[in-house]
């Protein structure tokens, strides 16, 4: 009984180590794939379209609402202390440092990550990857690498849009609706937000999240069991694992980046 459960733990550890190893190998090969400049670029653009452009709408709408909610909640609390001019800085700092990269990455995992997994899983199920391999074309170069880079590029861009839209949403609620002074809103924001410490660190966060989410999505697609049920399970895994990784990593990144602030 005891031995059996020990055996289970050992087996589980080994198999998860093996899958981490395989995933790293995929990542490594995708990153160092020697791209064919012209057609590689065209494939990248096509993937940025399906990964990034198609996510703009959900990102923009969510950003807008999150900004408005922040404006509303922030105003009710701040006005209790007569500090409602600080609304701009509250919205901007919380968006740029935390909510933007994290919520953006979570939405991205749900919208683009799951779609990537499903697409690659379906290509595996219908033997498209195998047939590519049999034609002497490495699917990691041809299919995985452009998708990986597209995700990697798209998420930071989406996060920027997300932040900007959220701040505009907060401005609309705070200034146009609740009557915070427009000048105070912007000037407090500007004196509180530092370009290097806040905005660039936020961008770095979203680059890290972009890598992690696309990596997980691509690997789960490649590793899916080639049945319709397997694809469903892989898609779920993508969303769950990337959400957990994003939240966990965010803690560490915050601890490293904002320790001195």
């Amino acid at each position: 009984m005891l031995i059996a459960s020990l055996q289970n733990i050992g087996g589980g550890t080994l198999s998860s180590l093996a899958s981490i190893g395989r995933a790293s190998l995929v990542l490594f090969r995708a990153i160092f794939a020697r791209p064919d400049i012209i057609s590689g670029f065209r494939r990248l653009v096509a993937q940025i379209y399906s990964v990034g452009v198609l996510s703009i709408v959900i990102i923009a709408i969510s950003g807008f609402f999150i900004g408005m909610v922040l404006g509303l909640q922030g105003y009710t609390i701040l006005s209790r202390f007569g500090a409602d001019q600080a609304l701009g800085q509250l919205i901007a700092l919380s968006m740029v440092r935390e909510l933007g990269p994290v919520v953006g990455a979570l939405l991205f995992a749900g919208r683009a990550g799951s779609a990537l997994t499903a697409e690659i899983g379906l290509m595996k199920t219908t033997e498209q990857l195998s047939s590519m391999e049999m034609m002497g074309v490495d699917p990691v170069h041809r299919v995985i690498a452009p998708r990986f880079w597209a995700g990697q590029i798209s998420l930071p861009l989406l996060t920027l849009i997300f932040n900007a839209v959220a701040i505009v949403g907060g401005y609309l609620v705070g200034v146009d609706w609740l009557g915070v002074d427009s000048g105070a809103f912007w000037s407090n924001m500007q004196s509180a937000v530092n370009f290097k410490e806040d905005i660039l660190n936020g961008v770095i966060k979203s680059v890290v999240f972009g890598t992690v989410v696309t990596w997980i999505a691509v690997y789960q697609g490649l590793n899916s069991v080639p049945t319709s049920e397997g694809i469903g399970r892989a898609t779920t895994k993508t969303v769950v694992y990337s959400s957990l990784c994003v939240l966990g990593l965010d803690f560490f990144l915050t601890a490293v980046m904002f320790r001195e602030l």
């Binding site: 219908t126 033997e127 498209q128 047939s131 590519m132 049999m134 034609m135 002497g136 074309v137």
Partner: peptide, 27 residues
């Protein structure tokens, strides 16, 4: 070596995002 082999998969395994012409032109 695989360029010397042709393989016909059970499902056909055509690339769904390419036309018939582009599929044959792919290799």
């Amino acid at each position: 070596m695989r360029r010397d082999m042709g393989m016909l998969f059970q499902s056909g395994a055509l690339f769904t995002d390419l036309s018939v012409y582009e599929n044959v032109a792919f290799p």
